Measured scan of single mutants.
Amino acid sequence: IGSLMYASIFGNVSAIIQRLYSGTARYHTQMLRVREFIRFHQIPNPLRQRLEEYFQHAWSYTNGIDMNAVLKGFPECLQADICLHLNRSLLQHCKPFRGATKGCLRALAMKFKTTHAPPGDTLVHAGDLLTALYFISRGSIEILRGDVVVAILGKNDIFGEPLNLYARPGKSNGDVRALTYCDLHKIHRDDLLEVLDMYPEFSDHFWSSLEITFNLRDTNMIPGSPGSTELEGGFSRQRKRKLSFRRRTDKDTEQPGEVSALGPGRAGAGPSSRGRPGGPWGESPSSGPSSPESSEDEGPGRSSSPLRLVPFSSPRPPGEPPGGEPLMEDCEKSSDTCNPLSGAFSGVSNIFSFWGDSRGRQYQELPRCPAPTPSLLNIPLSSPGRRPRGDVESRLDALQRQLNRLETRLSADMATVLQLLQRQMTLVPPAYSAVTTPGPGPTSTSPLLPVSPLPTLTLDSLSQVSQFMACEELPPGAPELPQEGPTRRLSLPGQLGALTSQPLHRHGSDPG
């Protein structure tokens, strides 16, 4: 009997000691992992102490058991019943959930998450997105703005933001810190809205009876308010094209079509300037034949640059190039080494500058006005007194259609001029006259002087055409309008007829 009692007592005591040691061994194993994590990542002392304290409290609170892992091991129907039991206190005593059906309560219970916070733990920081609604079931918390405590909340209090009033989550206007050990039930806004969409009859009752104890939403960050730039940057990543407008005076608003859609830094370009900076079609017209890549860069430059609305530039004389043409100036200075066709295309550029300027006046029909002061630039669209967005969009579309028509007509005119030049060069190729044979009589004449090349004649003739079109064909006081194609086609051969009437002889060394 004594040996039996000794064996039973010894066996029970050893089993008890073994169970104690097993729990202690698990605790030390998990604690060792936490300390190894702290050492590996070199976490500083204040945060390291918070980690160790939280682990110790969580171990004593749950005995080292992962409740979520245990809950996920059950089937979904059983999980709903378990969640309904775990959140029964909240669902029974909170006013917004009263009167809900059994199915609605089960769906809500599945969406709730339980959070346990030790003292000093910050649940929400200032500036964080308010993605959830919090219900306090135990403990107390404090809300701070800077170093000032603005509120202390306790059991059955609710904090967050009214989700039904805002389409997008706002930002917190303060820090939420736990004063004691707290148990909180939180539900994400997407989950709550999903359940309320499934039960629309409960939705009206819920929003009407929901009383948020403390609204954390920062009202200064609401979209459309003066301080909402940061919020707009976070939620409006896919922005449309940006529009900046110059201020319109009362006198300017009476004149229709007073602005032109141009790229940034293009205030001095012609009315047909689009795409790359520098001139019509993204580059100076005089350098068009020598740089074919300008047409390839036109599309990307047009689509990537934001639109700006600026006044037209001052008018340019008909014979003056659009500006920024070092290529043609070098050719004029060193005409001995340049291609003979460069002079002809220089005359073509003069005609283009004249036609572009006159067509700009035809479509816009307003006098040039000086540029406004820099303080009046970049007025935002949302400022008071601005035109409605639809009106601005319609004006932009009208300007775009005008620019497209202008570009089409300029292309047709350019093709006409090039065809005339090619026809003239085919009839009378460039050549130098040879020395004529002296006559049989004693009164022999001296050799004839060489005839100037055709490109120079073409430049003079085209300059005469531009001056003739600019000065004589337009009646005084009438708006400057571009001439039609047949009129220009008839004027060019008439001007060139006198020049080509002389018999030109080919030089023996000319390969053409």
Rank of each mutant, 00 (worst) to 15 (best):
P306T: 09
L496T: 11
V148F: 10
S375M: 08
G512L: 04
L418Y: 03
C471Y: 14
A498H: 09
R423S: 06
G154M: 10
Y432V: 12
A434D: 09
F135G: 02
E258D: 08
L129M: 10
D175P: 01
D157I: 01
L153A: 03
N404M: 12
Y181R: 04
G324V: 11
G268R: 08
F235K: 10
H507I: 11
S446R: 08
Q464A: 10
P300C: 09
G282D: 11
A151V: 03
F135D: 02
P340T: 10
S291M: 13
P511C: 04
R368I: 15
L327P: 04
S461P: 07
P493Q: 13
P442A: 09
A470R: 11
Y134G: 02
P317V: 08
T131C: 08
Q364K: 05
V435Y: 09
R401N: 15
E393V: 13
G441Q: 15
A269N: 12
G224W: 12
R405Q: 05
P479H: 10
M469K: 06
G127H: 01
N350Q: 09
V148S: 12
D157L: 02
R217E: 02
L262E: 13
F159H: 01
E254F: 10
T445L: 07
I187W: 01
L396M: 05
P223K: 05
G508T: 09
V150N: 01
A151Y: 01
R189N: 07
T500H: 10
K333T: 07
I222F: 12
P447L: 09
L210V: 09
H505F: 09
V392K: 05
L403Y: 04
D175T: 09
S225R: 09
F345A: 12
S411N: 15
L481Y: 15
G127Y: 01
V259F: 11
L459S: 12
G146T: 08
G497F: 04
R246S: 10
H185R: 07
S305C: 07
G170S: 07
P475A: 13
L421D: 04
S287H: 10
P169D: 01
G263Q: 14
G439C: 09
F202R: 02
V465A: 06
G477Y: 05
A415F: 04
H507F: 06
G282E: 14
K333A: 12
P292M: 03
S358D: 08
G127W: 01
K155V: 10
P322D: 04
D297I: 11
D336N: 05
P380A: 10
S335H: 11
I379T: 13
G497N: 05
A371T: 10
Q419P: 03
D175Q: 15
L165S: 09
E194H: 12
S303F: 13
P315L: 15
G360N: 14
A267V: 12
S452D: 09
L462R: 10
G139Q: 01
T456R: 10
L210D: 01
S383L: 15
T436H: 12
S303L: 06
P280Q: 04
G160T: 02
R401C: 05
L427Y: 12
D297E: 09
G288V: 09
V348G: 09
L210R: 02
S452H: 10
L499D: 09
S203L: 04
I136F: 01
P447F: 08
H185A: 08
G324W: 04
G154R: 07
P475H: 06
Q419V: 07
S383N: 15
R241C: 08
S137F: 04
P280A: 10
F202W: 13
R138Q: 07
V435K: 08
P306Y: 13
F202I: 08
L504G: 09
P374G: 09
T416P: 04
K240L: 12
T437C: 13
R145Q: 09
G497A: 07
G508C: 09
Y181L: 05
L165D: 10
P322V: 15
S225M: 12
S433F: 10
G512Q: 13
R361N: 12
R316Q: 09
L327K: 15
P374F: 09
K240T: 06
P162E: 07
Y199M: 03
E325G: 13
R423E: 04
D157P: 01
T443M: 06
G127S: 03
R368P: 08
D336Q: 10
M328L: 10
C369G: 10
E211K: 09
H205I: 08
S349P: 07
Q483C: 10
G494P: 12
L457P: 01
V259I: 08
S236T: 11
V451L: 09
L377R: 09
S137R: 09
F468H: 14
H205M: 04
S466R: 07
Q422T: 12
L216F: 02
E472W: 11
F468D: 09
L129I: 07
L421M: 04
G288I: 15
T249D: 07
L184H: 01
I379K: 15
A478R: 09
S342C: 10
L454H: 09
F354N: 13
T426L: 10
T373G: 09
T131G: 09
S294Y: 15
G154V: 06
P440T: 09
P162I: 03
L193F: 12
D250M: 06
A498D: 14
L243N: 08
P256M: 11
R316G: 15
F468V: 13
S228V: 09
G233L: 10
S290T: 05
P256F: 07
D357M: 15
L129S: 11
D336P: 10
P384G: 04
P256W: 09
P321T: 11
N173R: 10
P326Y: 06
P479M: 11
N173W: 11
S244N: 11
R239S: 12
L144S: 12
V348C: 09
R506P: 09
P285A: 15
S382W: 05
D397S: 08
P511F: 11
S463E: 10
T500P: 08
A167H: 13
T458S: 05
Q419R: 11
D250G: 08
D330C: 07
G160S: 02
D336I: 09
R274D: 15
G324C: 12
L309D: 14
L376H: 07
Y363G: 10
E232F: 08
P503N: 09
S203R: 10
E194Q: 07
S208L: 07
A167G: 12
Q238T: 12
S209Q: 10
Q402G: 07
C182P: 02
R246Y: 11
S305H: 01
G139N: 01
F214H: 05
F345Q: 11
G234I: 13
L196A: 03
L262T: 10
P442S: 09
Q467N: 05
P317K: 11
T131V: 09
G299P: 04
T253H: 13
L474Q: 07
E258Y: 07
M414C: 04
E142Q: 09
L153I: 05
F135I: 06
G224H: 10
L243I: 12
D175E: 09
Q419S: 08
Q502H: 05
G127V: 03
R266T: 14
L193G: 04
Y134V: 05
E296Q: 13
S342L: 05
L504K: 05
G270L: 11
R266L: 12
F202G: 03
T436M: 10
P447S: 10
T416W: 05
G227Q: 11
F345P: 08
D190L: 04
R361H: 15
M328T: 12
P503A: 12
Q464D: 08
G282W: 06
N220R: 14
T445C: 10
L327R: 10
M469T: 12
D357H: 14
P476G: 10
S383D: 15
E298Y: 15
R177V: 11
M469P: 14
T436L: 09
M469R: 13
L418H: 09
P388N: 08
I141C: 15
D183P: 01
L396I: 08
L179C: 08
L130F: 01
D297A: 12
R359K: 04
T337Y: 09
S501G: 11
F352Y: 14
Y432C: 14
T456D: 06
G360V: 08
R401T: 05
E296N: 09
S444D: 14
R506Q: 10
L457W: 12
S382D: 05
P264L: 10
P476M: 08
P476N: 08
P486Y: 15
G288T: 15
R316D: 12
R389K: 11
T180H: 03
E325A: 11
G268H: 10
P503M: 08
L459W: 13
L492N: 13
H505Q: 10
